[in-house]
Design a protein around this nucleic acid. Sequence first.
DNA 1: GAAATTGGGACAGTCATGTTGACTTATCTG
DNA 2: CAGATAAGTCAACATGACTGTCCCAATTTC
Lengths: 176, 176
Amino acid sequence: MTVPISASPVPAPVSPLKVTPASPLFLREDEIRRGIELLYFGYTSMIRGADAILEAQGLGRAHHRALYFIARRPGLSVGELIGLLGITKQSLGRVLTDLTGRELVEQRVGVADRRQRLLSLTPSGAALEARLFTELERSMARAYGEAGQQAVTGFWAVLMGLVPPDGRAQVEALQG
Amino acid sequence: MTVPISASPVPAPVSPLKVTPASPLFLREDEIRRGIELLYFGYTSMIRGADAILEAQGLGRAHHRALYFIARRPGLSVGELIGLLGITKQSLGRVLTDLTGRELVEQRVGVADRRQRLLSLTPSGAALEARLFTELERSMARAYGEAGQQAVTGFWAVLMGLVPPDGRAQVEALQG
DNA sequence: GAAATTGGGACAGTCATGTTGACTTATCTG
DNA sequence: CAGATAAGTCAACATGACTGTCCCAATTTC
């Protein structure tokens, strides 16, 4: 990455006014640690907003995650939800028993495959998920607004880069 | 959303070539959900890399977080660590008992205030933390490299925006 | 100097959420 | 029909958070 300058004796830096330029190779330990720490604090800050609502309902974050993905992809099967959450059938089972018992989630038999149980939110489940989403949205919308449109694109790009290549299709499929 | 057409017969859109322009106000629900989901999957993908090392040591993620912050700010007090982790004294107590019992962390009496116990890593603790950090670094460095320098700046900006204003000083103080 | 506050440790109990393993039922597919 | 798959269930267990209480030593305050 050396720029050959033959004629001029002292090669002047290209941008002398930038005091702390980011390393071109992104390899400095401090930059890695900054990312790790911001990811930790940013993530926990965002989800903390919904905790009060959940606690008032006697639910936990595991219930929230299930509600979120069922809202996002209504009609998904139990197996698909297990894959998204990355937990075992037994762990999800307890959460799903809670949610169906409270009539926040309902199941119906799959059409193509009658072994499947397709999940969707009841009206009250959708109302609760909307309240929870509003909390996350408040936090995320403020961050987007403060950082600006270009920053948001970078935010998405780095986060997608953190996901192992074989998992990216799943994330993309969830969206769009 | 009807467009009144009075004088000019067909008002041409301003940017007819942009197929899916990002909303200027960053308020479209899909953009919020994309951020929520990428943050969730990106965060879990990054930390998952260290789990195998931890499990081999019989330690958990709580131990990792404590090791990380002690490595980052050697000599910090128990109270400061509690503040960073956002957990109670009792919860941290068990983790710290484990780590000191395994001689990964050591405590010494505070100099200015002798009630304090200042935490630091032993050589073997530093070695373990370095191995764990290498795992996180591998993931983060790849994401930085794929996304590019400008994206990293945006990544940082959005994440800092997620942190409530009264908590940002603490995050900044951890760095630099 | 006495009293109140603070930093830290310890004990006991509880809850939420994850795990493994084994078994059952219904259904689909070769 | 035989085997594989989707889902549910029971039991046991591990982790990591919580609350509440009590204690000690050191510091700060009056």
